[in-house]
Design a protein around this nucleic acid. Structure first.
Length: 221
DNA sequence: GATTGATCATAC
DNA sequence: GTATGATCAATC
């Protein structure tokens, strides 16, 4: 496996080197089996890119490239380069989001600097034949950050005020909250209810497709 | 066809 | 069970 990149420029060059190559080629080089379907390997593409680029963070709550402060996100796109799915950002700390601010929040920290790597995700194309696209090193513009902050304030505000059960994926213009758990029977505690705590399915923050689509469009201009 | 809620694999 | 990586699939 490659060593971690020593600079952002080196990381970007490595990512550019993957552009145009297929998931099958890259996985073969790394000695990793490429699945025939993502049905039972949903994290395969993300894990493959992590290894190919030398990410080290593993399952810790820090960016994929801690020394660079860069988070890696694979972006499943159609043949036109448009994202096909929302992008998971992080879990929502339900029990203490009430005391948090946007600045310093997990969302703000995770999205401070992101390397998006588009990957072909057309159903008709076999996994191994899917090609990796050109990387996008992104930082939110003032407008993008303000928009994310508005959503975060609304969503975190509702949970902090004890209204977690009214928070659905319908809320949020660009940032939304959805279940994030092994299955719907998983429970965790959040502010609310008669005792001050309610048992709910764990939740996570996701970027809506239209938000990442705008990032891709901006990068192609 | 797009979106929301549900789910899958793996490491510790 | 908690974290990481996400896509699936029922529903709108």
């Amino acid at each position: 496996m490659p060593a971690p990149p020593e600079s952002e420029a080196e990381l970007f060059e490595r990512a550019r080197g993957l552009a145009g190559r297929s998931l099958g080629e890259v996985s073969a080089e790394l000695g990793i089996a490429c699945p025939d379907t993502l049905k039972r390997a949903k994290g395969f593409v993300g894990m493959l890119l992590e290894r190919a680029l030398g990410a080290t963070a593993g399952s810790k709550d820090v960016p994929d490239f801690p020394d660079l402060g860069v988070e890696l996100k694979s972006l499943p796109v159609d043949r036109e380069g448009k994202p096909r799915e929302s992008t998971f950002v992080c879990t929502m700390p339900l029990s203490d989001v009430a005391e948090m601010q946007w600045l310093g929040s997990r969302v703000q920290r995770k999205l401070a600097r992101v390397l998006f790597v588009p990957v072909e995700a057309t159903p008709e194309v076999a996994i191994a034949a899917r090609r990796i696209g050109g990387p996008i090193l992104w930082t939110a513009s003032a407008e993008e950050e303000a928009a994310l902050r508005r959503d975060w304030d609304e969503l975190a505000g509702l949970v902090g005020a004890g209204h977690v059960e009214s928070v659905t994926a319908h809320l949020g213009e660009y940032l939304q909250v959805r279940p994030k758990a092994a299955h719907s029977r998983v429970r965790t505690l959040a502010p609310g209810g008669d005792d001050g705590l309610v048992s709910v399915n764990p939740k996570g923050f996701y970027l809506r497709t239209k938000f990442t689509a705008a990032i891709v469009a901006r990068a192609l201009r």
